[in-house]
Measured scan of single mutants.
Amino acid sequence: DHWHVHIDGERIRLDGASEEFIRTLEELIRRGTDARELKEIIKEYLR
């Protein structure tokens, strides 16, 4: 599956992301997590 998110107007691909990770991201977004912080979390995950 190819997922991607838009954060700060930037399109970030989440290739190979699990549904669990996507749900976690959605939860963080709902909580109002800062965009820079979200991008860091995604970069760490994709390593």
Score class of each variant (00 low, 15 high):
Arg36Val: 11
Tyr45Trp: 11
Glu37Cys: 05
Gly16Ile: 05
Leu38Phe: 03
Leu25Gly: 00
Trp3Gly: 06
Glu19Ala: 13
Ala35Phe: 08
Glu44Val: 07
Asp15Glu: 14
Thr33Asn: 03
Arg30Ser: 12
Ala17Ile: 07
His2Cys: 05
Leu25Asn: 00
Leu25Ser: 00
Trp3Phe: 14
Arg23Asn: 09
Thr33Ile: 13
Val5Gln: 02
Leu38Glu: 00
Leu14Ser: 01
Arg36Lys: 14
Gly16Asn: 12
Ser18Gly: 09
Thr24Lys: 13
Ile42Ala: 01
Glu26Lys: 12
Phe21Tyr: 03
Ile41His: 07
Tyr45Gly: 03
Asp15Arg: 07
Gly9Pro: 03
Ile12Ser: 01
His2Ile: 13
Leu46His: 04
Gly9Trp: 05
Ala17Arg: 02
Leu28Glu: 05
Glu40Gln: 13
Leu14Glu: 00
Asp1Glu: 12
Arg47Asp: 03
Gly16Thr: 06
His2Asp: 12
Arg36Asn: 14
Ile7Tyr: 04
Ile7Asp: 02
Arg13Trp: 15
Ile29Lys: 02
Glu26Gly: 07
Ile29Trp: 04
Ile12Arg: 01
Glu10Trp: 04
Arg47Leu: 07
Arg36Gln: 14
Leu38Ser: 00
Ala35Ser: 13
Tyr45Pro: 00
Leu28Phe: 06
Arg13Asn: 15
Leu14Gln: 01
Lys43Trp: 13
Glu27Leu: 10
Arg13Cys: 13
Asp34Phe: 04
Arg11Ile: 15
Tyr45Arg: 01
Gly16Ala: 02
Arg31Gly: 11
Gly16Met: 07
Leu14His: 01
Ile22Pro: 00
Ile12Gly: 01
Glu27Arg: 07
Glu37Val: 15
Asp15Cys: 03
Arg11Gln: 15
Asp1Ile: 09
Asp34Thr: 15
Arg30Asp: 07
Ile7Trp: 03
Val5Pro: 02
Ile41Gln: 05
Ser18Gln: 04
Leu38Thr: 01
Ile42His: 00
Leu46Ser: 04
Thr33Trp: 07
Leu46Ala: 03
Leu46Gln: 07
Leu38Lys: 00
Glu26Arg: 11
Glu20Val: 04
Glu19Tyr: 11
Ala17Val: 13
Lys39Leu: 15
Glu44Ala: 09
His2Ala: 12
Leu46Trp: 11
Ala17His: 04
Glu20Cys: 03
His4Ser: 12
Ser18Met: 04
Glu37Pro: 01
Phe21Gly: 00
Arg30Ala: 14
Phe21Ile: 06
Asp15Phe: 12
Leu28Arg: 04
Asp8Glu: 12
Glu10Asp: 09
Leu14Ile: 15
Ile29Leu: 10
Lys39Ile: 12
Phe21Thr: 02
Phe21Asp: 02
Asp34Ile: 05
Val5Lys: 03
Glu27Met: 10
Thr24Asn: 12
Glu26Ser: 08
Ala17Ser: 05
Asp34Gly: 13
Arg13Met: 13
Arg11Ala: 03
Glu20Ala: 12
Ile29Pro: 00
Ile42Lys: 00
Glu26Phe: 10
Ile7Ala: 02
Ala35Cys: 08
Glu26Pro: 00
Thr24Asp: 10
Arg13Gln: 15
Arg11Leu: 15
Val5Asp: 02
Ala17Leu: 05
Glu44Tyr: 04
Arg23Ile: 09
Asp15Leu: 07
Glu44Thr: 04
Gly9Met: 04
Glu37Gly: 05
His2Leu: 07
Lys43Ser: 06
Gly32Cys: 04
Ile42Val: 09
Glu40Val: 08
Ile7Gly: 01
Glu37Lys: 12
Thr33Glu: 05
Lys39His: 12
Arg47Phe: 13
Glu40Met: 10
Trp3Gln: 09
Glu40Asp: 08
Asp8Tyr: 03
Gly9Arg: 02
Phe21Ala: 02
Ile41Arg: 09
Glu20Trp: 11
Asp15Ser: 11
His4Val: 15
Ile22Val: 10
Asp8Met: 05
Glu19His: 12
His4Asn: 07
Arg30Thr: 10
Glu37His: 12
Glu40Phe: 10
Leu38Gln: 00
Ile29Phe: 04
Thr33Val: 14
Thr33His: 07
Arg23Met: 11
Ser18Val: 04
Arg36Trp: 14
Arg11Cys: 12
Thr33Lys: 02
Ile41Ser: 03
Glu44Pro: 06
Glu10Ala: 02
Gly9Glu: 06
Ile22Gln: 06
Ile12Tyr: 13
Leu28Ser: 04
Lys39Met: 14
Leu25Trp: 03
Gly32Lys: 01
Arg11Asp: 15
Arg31Asn: 13
His4Arg: 02
Gly32Asp: 04
His4Lys: 03
Ala17Tyr: 05
Gly9Asn: 07
Asp1Ser: 11
Phe21Pro: 00
Asp34Pro: 14
Leu14Gly: 01
Ile7Met: 06
Thr24His: 15
Leu28His: 08
Glu40Gly: 07
Leu14Phe: 05
Leu25Met: 06
Leu25Phe: 04
Trp3Leu: 12
Arg30Gln: 09
Ile41Asn: 01
Leu14Arg: 00
Glu20Gly: 09
Gly9Cys: 05
Leu28Gln: 04
Lys43Arg: 11
Thr24Tyr: 15
Glu20Leu: 09
Ile42Asp: 00
